[in-house]
Nucleic acid binder design. Structure first.
Lengths: 255, 255
DNA sequence: AACGCTAGGTGTACGGGGTACACTTGTCAA
DNA sequence: TTGACAAGTGTACCCCGTACACCTAGCGTT
């Protein structure tokens, strides 16, 4: 009995063990049943012990999401942007499917943690490397947003807001410094965030035209629907086409 | 003082008043601060009083969503499916924007309430009326899902599951009866749900190929991106095109 | 050897949440 | 008058996140 306790002590808790246990527990019982108390019990520890390793439940969830992002394959160093993006999105999807709680967790998260920003940064890079303009990349990221995450909307609203901080209480020179840091660490994100409006030095993503972004993606889909309709598309034929062509690169273009 | 109480009594609570108060409260304080207790207080009533009008908080949220759906404009009786869909989606978006809690509420909801089914039914009808095959409509609905709602994924998993009921405890003849009811009330939904696999009588949407749905939408977007990229698309020009052409029907087709 | 610092774990307690259950009360038909 | 029924009440239970004071083991310094 004392032995058991000591055995536990021998590998003391740490942030990573906590996060991994949280992921495993959520996998098992679902996100709605993941409580600090239950997680603590799972770890053979008193609830408050967790707070020595995560600030609060929010941060726990952020950490879980970060772990999940770690499961997504890095971009393949392919010359073909489309192929690279496709593979990456499908990899992300696989990660989400392994963890049924993930979708909900991501959607509920509003803070842009470094893990999320890193992912976005590298994702953005795939388009830019493919020769896309920053402008087009910007809109494309918005359109794709919901497909990989729930981060469609307020993505670029406040790039400085990686932690909870109201804009008002940050002195201007500090804001400038943060912008420098952002630009250094996330050049792609900053590039596309500042693409559509040229007032570089000022607030970064303030003028992101939500309505336009939405209609951009909507019309892209509607136009695609129309084309398929006119072509007499059917899922059966699409599946046949897919299997007979090389891999799984569907080719809905007529010629 | 007794008068105030009596004034309250004179218009006794009812389901609709509860739901409307809930919507108003959520608009004000956010979904995370909407509690049964607070809502009761707002209505000048003890928390348990609410349970005479809604079964529980889940049902309250379902009701709120139903109210919200009621704010979406009905489909315009237009010959042009694209125009009709576009207007409807934009109307839905406006409704969501009026109620910041809506997105989160919809995403968290998993039950398919009549209100949601009615909306889907009429939405589906727009494509079918436009001459789309049930097959294509099926995929198109999936692809569009995330744009209007969060109901992309498990939409057709269990059409009988409008209320919480495990499939096992429903006798087969009852299932058949439910199917008849579904088909009568939601002909369009049933049509597209049964489109891709022909085993009509059996479980309806069991064989919905999630992976295929996902790739369908993904490739539609990627192909669209590619086309815009090749055309040298820019948001500035797109906005100019939009304003000079009739209304807001973007025309990305080269000719 | 004695000390004191610190990181990690504990125990207690508070306020808030959803809701089961037994109750009162006001209204109206018979 | 009665008595049934719908609406509202009061109390209580269990779960949640987490603030705060405390303990304890291990360690480097003196």
């Amino acid at each position: 009995m004392t032995q058991q306790l000591e055995a536990r002590r021998r590998t003391p808790l740490n942030r990573d063990r906590v996060l991994r246990a949280a992921v495993a527990l959520a996998d098992e019982v679902g996100l709605e049943s993941l409580s600090m108390r239950r997680l603590a019990e799972e770890l053979g520890v008193v609830p408050m012990a967790l707070y020595k390793h995560v600030a609060n439940k929010e941060e726990l969830l952020d950490g879980m999401v970060a772990n999940l992002i770690g499961e997504i394959d890095p971009p393949v160093p392919d010359g073909d942007w489309k192929r690279a993006v496709r593979l990456r999105v499908l990899s992300a999807r696989r990660a989400l499917q392994r963890h049924p709680w993930a979708r909900q967790a991501i959607e509920s998260r509003t803070n842009k943690t470094p893990a999320v920003l890193d992912y976005m940064e590298s994702f953005t890079g795939m388009f830019l490397a493919g020769g896309f303009s920053a402008d087009l990349t910007h809109h494309v990221m918005h359109a794709l947003g919901g497909r990989m995450w729930g981060f469609t909307q307020e993505l670029f609203d406040d790039p400085a807001g990686t932690t909870a901080e109201s804009p008002a209480d940050v002195p201007p020179e500090a804001r400038a410094a943060m912008f420098q840091q952002m630009a250094a660490r996330y050049p792609n994100i900053v590039a596309i965030a500042t693409s559509t409006h040229h007032d570089e030095g000022s607030v970064v993503g303030h003028g992101c035209d939500d309505q336009f972004e939405f209609e951009f993606a909507l019309d892209l889909l509607l136009d695609g629907f129309e084309r398929l309709h006119e072509e007499g598309w059917s899922s059966r034929r699409a599946k046949l086409d897919r299997t007979e062509s090389g891999d799984r690169q569907r080719a809905p273009l007529p010629e």
